[in-house]
Design a protein around this nucleic acid. Structure first.
Length: 810
DNA sequence: GCAAAACGGGG
DNA sequence: GTGTACGTTTTGC
């Protein structure tokens, strides 16, 4: 039974896509085991709804019959589910439209008004799923049984356009990557409507010839598909991208989680942001969704753009061609070969990213009764757990609770303790892996209304399967499909397991939400964190910061790694059986600044900056550079070194030996010229003033510029460093040169940047030094104080804020 | 310093 | 096939 809850029960292998129509037709594309040949099964299913009452169907008279009496022509069958639960009647008919029409007819009579859709009856009265999900839930089938990720036919395509606005701009080139890894580009022959229409027709023909199961790209749903849809409409090109004579590209409403932006009222709503697209027979997968899902837990990505992510994961080759987006079309004019390379690199990276991060959604699709593409962009709670729960209840013939609003009990959160600020050495991080699901399992904390215990059973099975998958992954050869599949399975199960707690706490959003259960989980969590902190402190460590499920602490200088591990395992042994405290890492030093804001230095010397205080996205390069060098000195205990770094930076600013490029901020112009001019009198913004002052009256919203504060309150604009060169001009800032090599102006406002250095960057070291030392280290080098203390004996400080016992309430 | 608004990503 | 959700950073007073 529990296996059926997790995996479904129908053994049909190889399903790669499902398309179902409300009229009861379903099309199932499968790859045959062994040959991998594609077949399409055209089947019928009985569309169904879940209702709280049969009242709206009694008007059918004899055409409403119990399921056990068999189908009625043009009628509806019903089955009453057992047990408590608002949604207790499954109603089925041959045609879902007739079924819905019958319900709507009855509802209109009862309510005295017409409804457009059964959903308008409300979540407590009806559950109506998309046809594919009706089919998958009823049949017990899931995608990808007995298939590996590499058995899918995956293709990628990437548009190059003259701009970002499909109402104005055009597609001039498309890069394609075939399932075997070959890449190719197709281009518009000319720049009129006919050439672009011809390009679109060739793209459609190529997709149909390649006949992929899956189409992937980065921001596919946010850019490429809406762009294509719009251009095809304007140019009157049919987009028959799907499989077999069914309709072409269709829109579906944006789903939760991954859709970007809110395109709110007021300003022009951006329709590109909300849509999702779908095709019969193929799955449309956006790697941006996988990236967001990954970063939600990992939180280690520098950005979510394709290039940044590919670089981060080592997918970018050394020869990777780079062109700033705004220049692509212009570069194409004089060096088309370079744009071709760039576009091919894009699809290659998108394919690599899809394989690296896409396995989790693939694995989810083997469990949950939804289309693969829906699972790729779904939130794990309502997108994965809820369909699993619905399928389990229906399989058991059990009535399903409807959504219920909370009783007003507030949701209590996790514990966060800051024990000390400043600099400490010999740091250990220990944490509990999957704390909340472990507590749910250990203390059997599940939703009150889940009388079958499905959620806890799912979590139990997922944890067991996950451990097994991890073990299989470890024993498989690195890079092998076996390893990839098991790592993906493990990642998918982790997503679901970790969302079980979120599911509990999402009152009003999830069917079985239970704030009391959620609060019991966090209460146990706070208890565990408090216990492990107290027990660590008793063993002679200095606690620094503890957050939810992990703790940083410092150990005495003479401890070895073995001592660190011993103390962690001693404390681990005192925790509840399923709660596993793990040794998560060791670091040479740590600057504890504020809760969730700290700097770690590894024993290899690498600096790790965490939290908003240390990660400002548009920070000026000279300041970032200063901060990193000062932190290195600080964490090594070298206070005179911090002073030297500061003096050197101030001096270099005053002598203007720091290039203007290093004081400039890289900003994006978000407002159009007219939008800015409209608000200019109310508030002036440096970036736009810089552009205007340079004599330019026109710019495109979204354009990146480098701006700085120049002398006499002027705003300075630097020429785009990416303009002409090969894009490798990532400027390496070191105060070693006499200004910009290209003769850039050195007219930045020195006083302003000296102040910025002190108040914004140096200020991040304030917790690390005694007040008199801080004042001395960051004193103005041109105004030497007579009483300046010697820094030779200065040491970083650690300030204990709370004794663990008082902070932890014991 | 705070609340409100904008952003994310794509060329 | 409509609507709301998010979390973080920047802006505006």
């Amino acid at each position: 039974m529990e296996d059926e809850w997790l995996w479904g029960w129908d053994p049909t292998p190889g399903i790669v896509s499902v398309w179902a129509e409300p009229d009861g037709r379903a099309f199932v594309w499968r790859r045959l085991p062994g040959t991998g040949a594609l077949v399409r099964d055209d089947v019928r299913f009985r569309p169904w709804l879940l209702l709280a009452s049969l009242d709206d169907l009694t008007h059918l008279g004899a055409r409403l019959r119990p399921e056990s009496e068999g189908p009625v022509p043009r009628g509806v069958n019903y089955q009453e589910l057992e047990g408590p639960g608002a949604l207790r009647y499954v109603v089925r008919a041959d045609d879902g439209r007739a079924l819905a029409a019958a319900v709507l007819h009855g509802a209109a009579r009862r309510l005295g008004r017409q409804l457009g859709h059964v959903r308008e009856l409300g979540e407590s009265a009806v559950l109506s799923l998309p046809p594919e999900e009706q089919y998958l839930i009823a049949s017990g089938r899931t995608y990808f049984r007995d298939l590996g990720f590499d058995d899918l036919r995956r293709m990628q395509f990437d548009l190059e356009t003259t701009g970002l606005d499909p109402g104005r701009d055009r597609i001039f080139l498309v890069a394609l990557r075939e399932p075997d890894g070959r890449t190719d580009v197709i281009e518009a022959h000319g720049d009129g409507d006919a050439a672009e229409a011809d390009l679109l027709r060739r793209l459609v023909a190529r997709v149909r010839a390649i006949d992929p199961d899956v189409i992937e790209n980065h921001n596919l749903h946010g850019f490429d598909l809406p762009f294509i849809a719009r251009r095809a409409r304007v140019l009157n090109v049919p987009l028959a991208l799907g499989r077999a004579g069914l309709p072409g590209l269709r829109q579906r409403p944006a789903s939760r989680g991954a859709s970007l932006g809110s395109g709110s009222m007021g300003r022009t709503p951006d329709p590109m942001r909300r849509m999702r697209y779908t095709l019969p027979g193929r799955e449309l997968i956006d790697t941006l969704d996988a990236v967001l899902r990954h970063d939600f837990s990992a939180r280690d990505l520098p950005g979510h753009g394709l290039k940044a992510v590919a670089r981060h994961f080592g997918l970018a080759g050394p020869e990777r061609e780079h062109i700033p987006g705004a220049r692509v079309y212009e570069v194409y004019g004089r060096d088309p070969e370079r744009v071709r390379r760039y576009a091919r690199d894009d699809v290659t990276e998108a394919a690599g990213l899809a394989r690296l991060l896409g396995g989790a959604a693939f694995a989810l699709a083997r469990m949950a009764p939804r289309r693969y593409e829906r699972l790729a962009d779904a939130g794990p709670a309502t997108g994965v757990l809820d369909p699993l729960l619905v399928r389990a209840y229906l399989r058991a013939g059990a009535a399903l609770p409807a959504h219920e609003s909370g009783d007003g009990t507030p949701h209590s959160g996790a514990a966060l303790h800051l024990f000390a600020t400043g600099v400490a050495r010999h740091i250990v991080k220990a944490d509990v892996a999957s704390l909340y699901p472990s507590l749910m399992r250990e203390y059997r904390i599940g939703p009150r209304r889940d009388r079958l215990g499905v959620l806890l059973a799912l979590v139990d099975r997922l944890v067991e399967h996950r451990l097994a998958a991890k073990a299989r992954a470890r024993s498989a050869a690195p890079g092998s499909p076996e390893r990839h599949t098991n790592e993906a399975l493990s990642a998918a199960m982790k997503i679901v397991v970790n969302s079980a707690y979120g599911y509990l706490g999402a009152v009003g959003l999830t069917r079985f939400a239970d704030v009391h259960a959620a609060n019991e989980v966090t209460r146990r969590g706070r208890e565990v964190l408090g216990l492990l902190c107290r027990e660590l402190a008793r063993r002679g460590v200095t606690l620094l910061e503890a957050d939810t499920d992990g703790v940083y602490f410092a150990v005495p200088d003479d401890w070895r790694e073995a001592d660190e591990r011993r103390v962690v395992s001693e404390v681990a042994a005192l925790l509840p059986p399923r709660v596993h405290l793990e040794f998560d890492g060791r670091y040479a030093a740590m600057l504890s600044h504020e809760p969730k804001n700290y700097v770690l230095q590894s024993y290899e010397g690498e600096l790790i900056l965490r939290g908003v205080a240390f990660r400002s996205s548009r920070a000026e390069p000279f300041g970032e550079d200063f901060l990193r060098r000062a932190l290195r000195c600080l964490l090594a205990g070298d206070i005179p070194g911090v002073r030297e770094t500061y003096v050197a930076t101030v001096t270099a600013l005053r002598r203007r030996t720091i290039p203007t490029l290093d004081v400039a901020a890289n900003v994006r112009l978000k407002k159009t010229p007219s939008e800015y001019l409209a608000v200019r009198e109310r508030r002036r913004e440096l970036s736009y003033e810089a552009v205007l002052a340079s004599g330019r009256k026109h710019w495109a919203a979204g354009e990146h510029v480098r701006v700085y504060r120049a002398v006499r309150g002027r705003a300075g604009l630097l020429p785009d460093p990416d303009a002409e060169d090969d894009g490798s001009a990532r400027h390496d800032s070191r105060d070693d040169g006499g200004g910009g090599a290209a003769g850039e102006p050195l007219d930045y406002d020195v006083d302003y940047y000296v102040r910025l250095l002190r108040e914004t960057f140096a200020a991040r070291l304030v917790r690390a030094l005694a007040p008199e030392d801080f004042a001395a280290v960051f004193a103005d080098p041109e105004q030497p104080s007579l009483f300046a203390p010697s820094l030779a004996n200065a040491r970083p400080i650690l300030t204990v804020l709370a004794e663990p016992s008082s902070e932890l309430g014991e």
